[in-house]
Design a protein around this nucleic acid. Structure first.
Lengths: 343, 343
DNA sequence: CAAATACTTGAATCAGGTC
DNA sequence: CGACCTGATTCAAGTATTT
């Protein structure tokens, strides 16, 4: 990661070692042994060692991120509090913590705790000022038309998706489901963006990035994992650009000033605007301001003014009379947008 | 809290200020103002001040906890990572992080993030060695017979439960639902335990503690809140002791050695024990050991031995023939337990 | 061949008391 | 503190096997 240039990456997704400190073997009630995560790479050491490790990769991530870039990281209670506190200290600005709620977690076999049924992700901008990518409407669409929440119910990676070695054992002990990465990348990156995964493992991030038309950089210390990841990703054919379009947020649509409506002649200076009930009126001025109640200003300011409200969306408050009916001026904006797209 | 004696408390439940950093007022799309958390007590300042504040109350909580005591704390991404890291650094031992998944969260009105639909709780023992209370069987029962998971779906506090001031405004900005405290106290405390809530607010912890027959200590700096809490709790009549009983784990039952079954004459030396299928047998000896497969030892050791298993619960593995049917020897143990209770 | 049953497995800080 | 013993304890999916 130290070799990457400054400010070259749009999004970082990091699935660092959790530094689990497991005791002896764990057996199920049927006496079978649980195949635990006891790999060397997960044994960072005590809190001090783990903190140094975390700060090191977080600092590098921060360096390579573009000013409007963002970072995701995932963890469990073993490590996520430390990582979260450090990234706040470094100036990352948390937008959400997101819960991956596992539909099929491993139970607590000894009956000593609550079933550990979730992991925590943190989504943070590089700085408080970073204008990070968030495809709000795409998330809403993905969630059947209601806002996507901060808790995501997804199955763990198993079955055919789980990569196996030649002898049928799992290739990587902590392979993440592609559905998780799909949602992360769809929500907070755009096609063509550069995604960096500093703990690439068997390449789930790369596989999903390729499917979704994102570019990616994967870093993996274990040559065996890297080899599996390479072959996995080579087998994927990315979708065509046209298939990657997602529902656009209104926010992402080009901004149309009210003056453009006047410029376009859809309204003329002196035309009257009405509130929905028709009782309040404003008069259009040539410069795209409106006059109402003895004052002048933007459609939003005047909408607020006549209501005595602190704010107002003038596009939906003000209406025009079209063939006897009142229609919000937003329909005029829509007409301009349609023209801009060359429809 | 500094006035409380050392090691005097069984459980701490802490709902500290979240250190929310809200920039300006929030308005809903219809322009109504969102009544956000902007009380003085939630504006601790920057991270340094908040960290000092967090360490101070955590240290006091640690001091007053009994050696086998435990602590709960709740927070959002604004503060929970810092609090979690500190309590780990202090030697608290995390058992679970628990997600309160809100069934009816406040939407994200600006469409810039995921709906903030959860809060995070941490359940930690005072030390790694603390044998904390966990009413596993009660939680399993509460959850329709399957293990309680680390994510709890509960509604936010609203409607009749939400305390109001005389003029109809909410009495406290972050009143927690009683259902949340109910689950916390039921899971990790016993009737008669002393519960400390250092951020008592309007007394939800005290109200639920009283209902559940726990004793409590509430600390609240705001006299107005404290007054509301006092009146709220005074109106509650605790349930009768008999109504506070919950499903007990078998671990909590008195231990009966197999030899006691022989001493009581429920089995005689030379009697034969069978596995469930009747194919394997063992012969009872006078000292409570059994002989099977050419070896002798405890019912557990011989059960494991004849199966070639690493371990075995002899009480459920071995059976006696009663009127032609095979019954596990556990029924004999149950008979002795019943006699011990003086029934 | 379909349906029913059995087996396998997953980021796990997974017991408690006595000698 | 370590060794040793008793004996309590699992959910949802996917895959394999049997009926």
């Amino acid at each position: 990661m130290a070799d990457l240039p400054d400010e070259s990456v749009d999004l970082v997704f990091a699935d660092p070692p959790y530094n689990l400190q497991l005791g002896g073997d764990l057996h199920r009630p049927d006496n079978s042994r649980v195949d635990a995560v006891d790999d060397d790479w997960d044994q960072i050491g005590d809190f001090d060692d783990y903190d140094l490790f975390s700060c090191a990769w977080l600092e590098q991530a921060r360096r390579v991120l573009k000013p409007d870039g963002a970072l995701w990281t995932i963890g469990s209670y073993h490590n996520i509090f430390r990582v979260g506190a450090f990234l706040q200290d470094m100036g990352f600005w948390i937008h959400n913590d997101v819960i991956w709620r596992k539909s099929n977690p491993m139970p607590n076999f000894k009956g000593t705790r609550f079933t550990n049924a979730h992991e925590t992700l943190i989504w943070a901008g590089k700085t408080k000022a970073s204008r990070v990518t968030f495809n709000y409407a795409a998330m809403k669409a993905l969630n059947d038309g209601v806002q996507m929440r901060s808790d995501w119910t997804l199955a763990i990676c198993a079955g055919g998706e789980r990569l196996k070695t030649g002898d049928g054992r799992k290739a990587h002990p902590t392979q993440k489901p592609e559905a998780l990465l799909h949602r992360v990348l769809l929500a907070t990156s755009n096609p063509g963006d550069i995604i960096l995964d500093p703990f690439f493992g068997t390449g789930t991030t790369g596989a999903v990035a390729r499917k979704l038309g994102r570019r990616f950089i994967g870093i993996e210390a274990d040559a065996g994992y890297a080899d599996i990841a390479r072959r996995r990703i080579a087998a994927i054919s990315p979708a065509a650009d046209a298939d990657l379009k997602v529902t656009q947020s209104k926010r992402a649509l080009p901004r149309i000033p009210f003056g453009a409506v006047v410029e376009a002649g859809l309204l003329k200076p002196g035309d009257t605007l009405y509130c929905a009930q028709g009782r309040r009126t404003a008069r259009v001025r040539p410069d795209g301001t409106v006059a109402a109640g003895g004052e002048t200003g933007s459609i939003h300011q005047m909408g607020a003014h006549v209501q005595g409200a602190p704010a107002c969306n003038g596009w939906t408050f003000w209406h025009v009379r079209q063939s006897g009916q009142l229609a919000p001026i937003d329909v005029l904006r829509a007409r301009i947008r349609a023209e801009m797209e060359g429809v």
